[in-house]
Amino acid sequence: MSVSNSSVTRMPVPLALAARVLPLLPLQVLLNICLGEIRSRHPRIFDRLGSHTSKRYGLEPTDLPIAFVLEPRRMNPRITAVRTLPSNLDARIAGPLSALIGMTDGSYDGDALFFSRDIHVDGDMEAVVALRNAIDDSRVDFLSESVVWLGPLAAPIERLLRSIVGSSSLRHEMGAGGGG
């Protein structure tokens, strides 16, 4: 549970409920296309990860009924959508989707989210710290870069996604550290 003055937004309940019936296979195909795009645009992420490219990360949006297993292999990175995270992970990062996205686009500071209890981390902390630093340096804009392959549909779909998780500028205004 986060501290009482947390400013991190949560996914609206109707959307979270809708995600329960979201088919995972098409989502997974889309996510892996996105990951391929990010890999080609941000090769430095893998340099910063170093030996941690072999780790398995569990990413758990706590306001959604789905989670993701990230395997950031340099040659063939993979992300798998799951209903429940498996136990054979090296590390787990859990928190509201907007917090997880906000850490990738630089609008939230991961340490501050930890202090405010908005995110939870466990497992191999070296792997967690390396991933956080690699992503932070990359300036990857996950939402924007995830839809770039959609061509003319990219802009409206990006707007839709941002309306769901909150724009990065709004997160900045709400306090980069979370917790006010």
């Binding site: 850490m103 630089g106 939230y108 500071d109 991961g110 340490d111 501050a112 932070d136 900045h172 550290g177």
Partner: peptide, 10 residues
């Protein structure tokens, strides 16, 4: 130095 860009900028 160990903190993220959000901390540095703000």
């Amino acid at each position: 130095r160990q903190r993220g860009r959000a901390y540095i900028e703000r």
